[in-house]
Amino acid sequence: MEKIKLLAITHHSKKNINPIRPEAAQIIGLHNSGMVDVTVLCNPGSTLIPHLEKEGITVLTDPLNKKLSRSTISHIRRLIKELNIDILHLFNNIACSNGATAAIGTKVKVIAYRGQTGNVSRFDPSSYLVMLHPRLNKIICVAKAIEKDLHQYLWGDKSRATTVYKGHDQSWYQSNPASLEELSLNKDSFKLSMVANLRPRKGLDVFMDALSILPKDLNLDVLLVGADPKNPKIQEMLERSTISSRVHALGYREDAPEVAAASDVIILPTTKREGLCRAVLEANSYGVPAIVSDTGGNAELVSDGQTGIVVPPSDPEALATAIMKLYKDRNLCSEYGIKSKQRTIEKFNVRQGVERTLEIYQSLLR
């Protein structure tokens, strides 16, 4: 059987390999399947490059720094024709707007990646450069909630949107938990962690308000990865918790998964527009359960009452109640962690992502 000729287009900064592990693993898995001839186009200096080249994958570069670039569009169009590409797989918005436009007038099948709910409108012209681009044959969503959300905006065939869960590999999560010796943590404290920033939809304010509701004599420590301790707005947010001495803003760290591994529970209180949160999958892979809000793909990550707890979004009282439940019952917390790790292995592995993507490629070409 002749191999499928794939051109995958993506863009990544030089920081932190962790966010791109599932994407790189998928591309490498397609290459290693023996059924796909993979070429990757990415930005110069992308952290993907050494990982892909090590596997023998052809990597080409383009700045990929504009939503619509005449030179990038010409470059992609030339590659489609010269390499006789069957599938054009576009992994972010810049790749989508340029790649789908370059595909106009060619026979190549075009697939876009969709990682979160919301931010699409039939009345917004910019949406027709990405998720509503008329040249897209398929949109691969990372969660069923995202697929369902996208259905309300798509014209015509709604089945163009489908779901493929990103795959994680247990071999990525064998490091020791992060050393927290530099922090003044209470002895045997119950540790809550969150990958935090100040974007309102991430729900840091909801978390801080939940902390303010909890009894003040709890032996708690809170670890906020990504929260800049020098930022006055972060300091204001910490004061909002009413236990600011126990809330530790750790700033940017490359060992975010290992910080989660050193925690008892990870918190994800997103208020809207969530995808399939990598931080939760990383924590679960270390056997750490999560408390998440019921938005986007969160409820697909966590089986409520089995592997963690799902609470309503923007509800500090419900979040505080969930924290207390696991604080009071450490055996239940540990049980959730064990089950969450097993669920990640079974449901969110690399193999299922590669196999499902191959099925989509083959169905388009049929």
Rank of each mutant, 00 (worst) to 15 (best):
I9Y: 05
I9L: 13
N16A: 14
R21F: 09
A25N: 07
Q26Y: 08
Q26F: 08
I28L: 08
G29Y: 00
L30I: 03
N32H: 12
S33Y: 10
V36A: 10
D37C: 10
V38R: 02
T39I: 04
V40S: 04
P50E: 10
H51M: 15
L52N: 01
L60D: 02
L60F: 11
K66P: 00
K67S: 14
R70N: 11
T72S: 14
I73P: 02
S74C: 14
I76Q: 04
I76V: 15
R77E: 07
R78V: 06
L79F: 09
I80T: 01
I80L: 15
L90D: 00
N92D: 14
K107R: 15
V110K: 04
I111A: 01
I111C: 07
A112P: 00
A112N: 10
R114Y: 01
G115K: 11
T117P: 00
S126V: 11
L129F: 14
V130P: 01
L136S: 13
N137D: 15
I139W: 11
C141E: 05
K144M: 05
I146V: 14
I146F: 02
K148P: 06
S159L: 11
R160M: 12
K166G: 09
D169Q: 10
S171M: 11
S175V: 04
N176T: 13
P177Y: 05
L180V: 07
E181G: 13
L185G: 03
K191T: 00
L192G: 06
L192F: 00
S193C: 12
V195E: 03
R199C: 04
G203T: 00
L204V: 08
M208T: 06
A210L: 06
S212C: 09
L214I: 04
D217A: 02
V225I: 13
V225H: 05
A227I: 03
K230S: 15
K233F: 11
Q235L: 12
E236Y: 01
E236I: 00
V247K: 04
A249P: 09
G251T: 10
E258Q: 13
A260C: 12
D264N: 15
V265T: 10
I267Q: 10
T271S: 02
G275C: 04
A279H: 03
E282I: 00
S285K: 00
G287K: 07
P289Q: 08
A290Q: 02
I291K: 02
S293W: 03
G296Y: 13
A299M: 08
V310G: 04
V311Y: 07
V311H: 02
P313W: 09
E317W: 13
A318Y: 08
K328D: 15
L332W: 07
L332S: 03
S334K: 15
S340H: 01
E346Y: 14
K347R: 15
Q352V: 03
Q352H: 15
V354K: 09
I360W: 13
S363G: 09
